[in-house]
């Protein structure tokens, strides 16, 4: 794994975007995004539906590359490396920047094999049993499943499945973990468990999370970006960042009217 990505000089901002515009074909989905993501922090993306939060999130691990019409203008830097430079392999990016999805999506394999999937792809040479245990412990799932590692991941409860997906993402020891509404399919108790988990995980990883739950953003994140959406004359809806600041500032003293209205629950 001596890739260009790894050789990137470590900087305090993990991601840095410059005038990023995201397109699907001719359709401008998100415009003028200039944002810095601080290392070992939790950054939340909030905003009304359809404002492009998830689209932006998926730019950071190049998962949007799977959509044929997708392209960007502007730059995204990962540390000091241009993430969309032609010599960058998107597969390598995804090995550095893990992802947890909205709906828990464990593989139809055993719990053990779910965790071991990523490390095996990377040709992990160490003690797999220990790595599995470590990953499950970090995801606060070890005590629930230590006696049934051979059981199917898909047989766990929803909250456990999502923690399994987090453990699976951790197992490849990524630099960043992207989370796309990870708690939207979970009950309040499971949600709180995952929020607690986030606080522990940020010691080692940089976390970016899309959420519809404003309490979650205010409880769990260090920085918050508020996205909004506006329609142009042709009815195309383009998302943009209204305000990006420390989370307390966004929720207690927002500079923009729209942010104030959204965080106080008056629209969205």
């Amino acid at each position: 794994m001596t890739s260009r990505l790894q050789s990137a000089r470590q900087t305090d901002s993990v991601f840095h975007t410059e005038d990023l515009n995201i397109y699907y074909g001719n359709f401008l989905a998100v415009r003028d995004l200039s944002i810095d993501i601080a290392k070992n922090s939790i950054t939340a993306f909030i905003g009304p539906s359809g404002c492009g939060k998830s689209t932006v999130l998926r730019c950071f691990n190049r998962l949007n590359d799977l959509i044929k019409s997708f392209h960007i203008k502007g730059k995204i830097y990962y540390h000091d490396q241009d993430l969309y430079a032609s010599e960058i392999d998107p597969v390598e990016v995804r090995r550095q920047v893990g992802m947890v999805f909205q709906k828990p999506n464990p593989f139809p394999k055993s719990i053990y094999d779910n965790i071991a999937f990523g490390p095996r792809l990377l040709g992990y040479k160490g003690d797999m049993d220990e790595l599995v245990e470590q990953s499950l412990k970090q995801a606060a799932l070890w005590d629930d499943v230590k006696d049934k590692l051979k059981a199917f991941g898909t047989d766990l409860s929803g909250g456990q499945q999502q923690r399994l997906c987090i453990a699976r993402a951790i197992a490849v020891q990524p630099d960043v973990i992207l989370m796309d509404e990870p708690c939207s399919a979970l009950d309040p108790i499971s949600t709180l468990k995952i929020e607690d988990l986030l606080q522990e995980l940020k010691e080692k990883y940089t976390i970016m999370i899309v959420t519809h739950n404003m309490q979650q953003a205010s409880r769990a994140s260090d920085y918050t970006a508020f996205f909004n959406v506006e329609a142009n004359s042709k009815g195309q809806r383009t998302g943009y960042v209204v305000e990006y600041d420390r989370t307390e500032a966004i929720f207690q003293s927002p500079k923009e009217q729209a942010t104030q209205a959204y965080v106080s629950g008056r629209f969205g």
Binding site: L66, R95, G98, N105, K109, F117, G118, L121
Partner: peptide, 27 residues
């Protein structure tokens, strides 16, 4: 096979072939 499983595999840094042979075919 649910699209979420493909995305999960790609999201972990699996290549197209790894995704097909280790996830899609077994599923």
């Amino acid at each position: 096979v649910p699209a979420e499983l493909r995305q999960a595999a790609y999201g972990l840094g699996a290549t197209r072939w790894e995704t097909i042979f280790q996830i899609l075919l077994p599923a």
